[in-house]
Amino acid sequence: MLPKAVLATGNMPAVQGTVTTMDGSVKAAKTPEAAKKQIVAGYAALGSLLDDFDKISAESGGDGIRRLLGTVGTESPVYLIEPAFRLLFEADESLPMEYIESVEAVMQNLSEADSEAYSAIFIEFSSAKGKPADYFKKSKAAVVRAREQWLGLMKILAIT
Rank of each mutant, 00 (worst) to 15 (best):
Q38M: 04
L46Q: 13
P77R: 01
S115V: 01
Q38H: 07
L50Y: 13
E98M: 09
G61K: 01
S25Y: 09
A117I: 02
K4C: 01
D92G: 06
D114W: 04
F89T: 01
K131M: 11
E82V: 04
S127A: 10
E82W: 02
Q108V: 02
V72G: 01
V15F: 05
A105F: 11
T20A: 10
I81M: 15
A34Y: 06
G61C: 01
V78A: 07
L69P: 03
S48K: 12
A91I: 02
E75C: 04
S60M: 03
K36I: 02
W150Y: 13
T74G: 12
V26D: 00
V144E: 15
R66W: 03
S126I: 04
V106R: 02
S48N: 14
K129S: 14
V143H: 03
L49K: 01
V72K: 10
D23F: 07
K131T: 13
V103F: 06
E148G: 06
T74N: 12
I123D: 08
K27Y: 03
A8M: 06
M12A: 13
M22R: 11
T21S: 15
S126W: 06
Y43K: 08
V19M: 04
L153C: 11
L2N: 12
A35V: 05
S60L: 02
I65N: 03
A158C: 05
I56Y: 06
E59H: 05
Y118M: 08
